[in-house]
Computed example of a mutant assay.
Amino acid sequence: MPIAEVILIAVFAIVPLAFALLSLSRAYRSAGWPTATGTMTRSRVQVFSPLTNGSKVSSRWMMEIEYRYQVGGKAYTGWRVHFGSAPGLAFSRRLVARFPLHSSVAVRHHPDQPALSVLLPGASGYAWSSLLLSPAFALVGEIVYQIVSRAV
């Protein structure tokens, strides 16, 4: 196997797989993390102007979630709602409705790294989706390699 192919497989498959496994591991462990009371400091879905894509019109959007909490007298700011890939627009709107601005929230935080926190602990479908997409990244890496190797 040529070195270029090995590098592309590493970049497109192994690295995303490693991040997906780390995220899934943290998701499972977060269910047992200590809880602190926090306050929502940002909670909105920002929708940008529609983009015309041929005959379809689509919007770009971004979910903005931020909460503050304290552990051992030290203040922290978190942004993670759950572990895993980003949810779609409809689910993001439901999350924002579930965690309104200035509301009190239960924040799960890592016992040794309190800055690592999450609002919805445990492994959801979003945590698994990152792992399941890793083979697709490997396929993309192989396709890129085949295209590049033919062009040379």
Rank of each mutant, 00 (worst) to 15 (best):
T52Y: 07
S23K: 13
A27I: 14
K56T: 09
S55K: 13
A27W: 10
D112W: 13
A10E: 00
M62A: 14
A10V: 10
A13G: 07
Q46F: 12
P34W: 12
A136M: 15
V107K: 07
L120T: 05
L119H: 02
A138I: 08
S124K: 01
S49L: 12
R29V: 07
S92R: 07
S58A: 11
A75G: 01
G122P: 00
I65N: 03
V45G: 05
A90P: 05
A138M: 11
P135T: 05
L101G: 02
K74I: 13
R44A: 04
G125V: 08
V96P: 01
S149H: 11
M62V: 10
S49E: 15
L139R: 04
P16G: 00
G38W: 07
H102L: 03
I9H: 10
Q113A: 13
S59R: 06
L133T: 11
S92Y: 08
V11T: 03
M62L: 13
T37V: 10
Y145S: 12
S49H: 14
S30K: 06
S43P: 03
A13Q: 01
S59Y: 02
V15D: 05
T39L: 01
V118L: 08
Y69C: 01
S49C: 10
G78H: 00
M62K: 15
V57S: 15
S25P: 01
A151V: 13
T41Y: 01
V144M: 08
F137M: 05
S134T: 11
L24Q: 07
I7Y: 06
Y76V: 06
P34L: 12
T37S: 10
P100S: 06
I9F: 12
A138F: 11
R108C: 08
L22E: 04
P135I: 03
I3P: 11
A31H: 12
E66I: 00
G122A: 01
D112P: 11
L21P: 07
S124F: 02
P2I: 09
Q46G: 05
S129M: 06
T41C: 00
M62F: 09
A13I: 03
A31Q: 15
L139C: 09
L131Y: 08
